[in-house]
Design a protein around this nucleic acid. Structure first.
Lengths: 161, 161
DNA sequence: GAATAGGTACTCGGATAATGCCTGTCCGAGTCTAGTGGG
DNA sequence: CCCACTAGACTCGGACAGGCATTATCCGAGTACCTATTC
């Protein structure tokens, strides 16, 4: 799985803590985790394309959450980075079997059951991710780390290095 | 996800249909789906290392299932090919945050909640795959394609091309 | 003093290289078989 | 006729290149701000 997924999730949480008033630049988000700025910017662009964050250019520009944290699921962030395709790609090798005369032609009217089995697992994975919003994650973290919210917000918006 | 997963699953099913009496060569399994023989052999080696199939060298050699289909889950096959590592790798960027004085040190005694969220999804995925055995899959296919069992066995063991 | 035009600095955005993993291939080690010669 | 030996062929097994996606980077388009000038 793409490494940017982890970056995107943490950055979205940070943007949630930063609040919607002011935008946070990619450089500042990258500095927070010592990540390569330009590459993180690429991930943020992907989030912007999917309407998860909104970007504003120019001075005082940067990124902010485009929706409320309650309206953004973890799945949204993951699919924005990874794309919509499921991990398991059925290449239909089953249909390349020899002598379809022996194997009934009717066999191939049915969907590939191997594909179905993998699709079920993929669905369970997506369902689990879709069941958690950024707000849930944010609340959980604040529960175990009360200082995280204000501390992160202060560092991102303040001038501190 | 590795393309070999699809190959391995179909090949394991074919080995189940072929039965334990005679081994099936990698070349024959590859010919069944028009796959590159040497590369499929590589995947079968991975299955052999994990004890899912057993290999016998020499003439009349080849591969056969090492266990009963009831004792092989889809997850077993997937992890044999893909490895045991979960798709999401937590690189702990959270621990690289600046000024740990401001952010409470206690924060970092807790496990990363982003990681936990992804791990829960991974667990759901694995649980779904572990819930299905090769025997289940085999029975489902035989249900919709009654000729598959005998047809496949005949092609694999017989001399037909 | 206030408004405006211009310049400047800053930000995102997409186009462009470098790296690592997956894909694909090859040849060698080991083993069973078949044939051959001898008892 | 039966057995042992030898040669052969066949199979897996791991070591060796190629292609593509991910990683990383750079420069250009656009915008807001600041400054200087003019009314």
């Amino acid at each position: 799985m793409n490494e940017g997924v982890e970056w995107a999730l943490h950055c979205c949480l940070n943007l949630a803590w930063a609040g919607p008033e002011r935008a946070v630049t990619a450089a500042r988000l990258a500095a927070f985790y010592e990540l390569p700025t330009a590459y993180l910017n690429k991930q943020l662009q992907a989030l912007a394309r999917e309407g998860i964050v909104s970007s504003t250019p120019g001075p005082r520009g940067g990124f902010r959450l485009a929706r409320q944290p309650e309206e953004i699921t973890v799945l949204d962030v993951v699919t924005a980075i990874e794309g919509r395709d499921p991990a398991f790609q059925c290449t239909h090798i089953r249909k390349r079997t020899p002598n379809n005369g022996t194997l009934l032609d009717d066999d191939f009217r049915q969907p590939c059951l191997v594909h179905q089995a993998m699709a079920r697992a993929d669905l369970a994975w997506r369902r689990e991710l879709a069941g958690q919003t950024l707000a849930d994650l944010k609340a959980s973290i604040e529960g175990v780390a009360p200082g995280a919210a204000e501390g992160t917000r202060g560092w991102l918006l303040g001038g501190g290095g």
